[in-house]
Design a protein around this nucleic acid. Structure first.
Lengths: 337, 337
DNA sequence: ATGAAAGCGCTAACAG
DNA sequence: CTGTTAGCGCTTTCAT
């Protein structure tokens, strides 16, 4: 009942452990072990229900066939999908995935990277946490391939997969303007990483170009107590004497919280307020109010992240920053209200 | 630059590897190594940036501090949340989590269990796949602790965490009836595992008790091409000369697909049709149509699954089936139409 | 209080 | 063609 090892098979057959290893790892046929012995070994392995010990194999070869994935929060639909596609793609290459969540916490990020490195993963795909450059640096100091997703550390020369946040945000904002919106607010996390700064800036710049920019309408909230801050922000916007007529939510969670509150507060969409969300949400399809959104090609990005990582694991040392195009979906084709 | 081992530290200090191990794994203070040496070793380890090799440790101790989690599809909000809480709880115990998706496929389930066993995970939390008893049996044959979640194999004596599907479905159905619904349809996966059969039966039995049961209105769809089958089912129900006035969707994905199609088809909720969904969806809060739903205490379930598993890993051999209460949320408190 | 050595299960280089 | 052997990095028992 105790787990059977190659030695056990070797003993039973009176051959050596080395031969068993050769056969069982498929390297036998290369004009090595005789066909008869091969078959005998394979048969006995099956009979004894032999299962290779990957831990021992990893220790010996230095390869774990495992990649670490660090996202903000896997229960977030965006990262859940991203992770799903990473996993499915990794499976194709024969890799297993350890997933972890930072909750945007620098300490957790630090701990997780340590754990992954100590577990000797072959590569790491991660969502950078604000101010975590030094932590990310530890990965490369250990010569472990990595790919940043969603955001990147600008000074850090490492692979990155993301979308054209700036351009998509700017274009979507222009679209809102051409729908007739004049006072557009932005609600974003106070995180200083490109994915978010570019969204804010894309929107601000578009507003400036149209002479509609108002600094007071760009609101940044803290990740930790976003619920309250978002609610408060909308309350303030709603009480603003100069009526705001559209809100650009920089992420799905912000948007969901925002919409919930708007219902409570009796703010009509799109009658009182137009909405633009960075990210598509499954639920939008069942929310029968018009919600404009920007959609990232999550599947392609997830698959590409794995492809890139595997290339690195296999020895490539080209660093690439891969920027995908986000799709802009404006629900109302013509004037509203 | 090459990774530093305990031997390297030992060499540098002229002590033995064993002593270094003792100190670095914290077992030194037990009246063993001298305080001075202790400090010296710890300091040098830090200086040399020593990182323990968990693979080697695992090989030696037979413990990986890793648990495997097998869900249907992590991009599904329900499993995404479940997995999130499993991960956060595992983190508290110092465990890392490998997550994988079966997509309800028996072959994938088989492969995944093999991989997890070969990677020598300390325990497995999994969502059973229809007809996968023999595969699950392999886990217990290897004496690896496990916990089934969401569903269970009836003949299989193993831990399980789930909800009272039958009771919740029956009560929710009764609630629909008391709202005035008379012709209630059910759309469910054709999967023969308790989570789903109990939902169907809870609903059917409630209908029977009220003399409203009609076999033709209980529809089972295939997981693989659910989109089409669900759409078709609703189309049929809509064309049914005897007007159906409510649909019970047995899972969130079925519900989302269903609602999307209902919008397309111009079916008004709740005017034309009342809706009941097994599972709450974040999006419901932003869908401003009334959707009745049954909500599982996902967080508690995820945490409990880990607690249970860890107990088993620590030697307990009690088998428990833990059934949580789902909450029923009926949106319209009084008559409609 | 510390060192020496065995061994976890596997691979790979070398010998025969 | 097949056996032998030396580790991979760590823990742990047994000496000293």
């Amino acid at each position: 009942m105790a787990t059977v090892s190659m030695q056990d098979i070797a003993d039973r057959l009176g051959v050596s452990k080395g031969t068993v290893s050769l056969v069982l790892s498929g390297k036998a046929r290369n004009k090595r072990v005789s066909k008869a012995l091969c078959e005998k070994i394979i048969r006995t392995a099956r009979e004894m229900d032999y299962q290779p010990n990957e831990i021992a194999r990893s220790l010996r070869t230095g390869v774990t066939k495992t990649i670490g994935v660090v996202v903000t929060d896997i229960s977030n639909e965006f990262f859940g999908r991203f992770t799903f596609h990473i996993q499915e793609q990794a499976k194709k290459y024969g890799y297993t995935v350890i997933t972890t969540n930072t909750n945007e916490s620098l300490d957790e990020f630090d701990d997780l990277i340590t754990i992954l490195l100590n577990k000797r993963v072959d590569g790491i795909i991660f969502v950078p946490v604000d101010n975590g450059q030094d932590i990310a640096l530890r990965i490369s100091n250990n010569r472990i391939p990595m790919v940043q997703i969603d955001r990147y550390y600008p000074e850090f020369k490492a692979n990155y997969i993301g979308v054209n946040n700036y351009k998509a945000s700017a274009e979507a904002t222009e679209a809102l303007i051409s729908l007739g919106c004049r006072r557009i607010a932005v609600i974003c996390y106070d995180i200083n990483l490109n994915a978010l700064t570019e969204r804010r800036n894309g929107c601000s710049d578009a507003l400036k170009r149209n002479g509609l920019y108002e600094p007071g309408l760009i609101i940044n909230v803290d990740y930790e107590n976003q619920e309250e801050e978002i609610t408060q922000a909308i309350m303030d916007l709603n009480n603003n004497p100069l009526k705001v007529d559209a809100i650009f939510f920089c992420s799905r969670r912000i948007c969901i919280t925002g919409i919930k509150y708007m219902y409570q507060a009796g703010i009509k969409i799109p009658g009182d307020m137009q909405i633009l969300c960075f990210d598509n949400i499954d639920s939008f399809r069942i929310a029968n109010v018009p919600i404009n959104y920007i959609e990232q090609p999550i599947r392609e990005m997830g698959e590409k992240a794995v492809d890139l990582l595997i290339e690195q694991i296999n020895g490539s040392d080209e660093v690439s920053r891969c920027v995908f195009d986000a799709a802009i979906n404006i629900v109302r084709p013509s004037g509203m209200r």
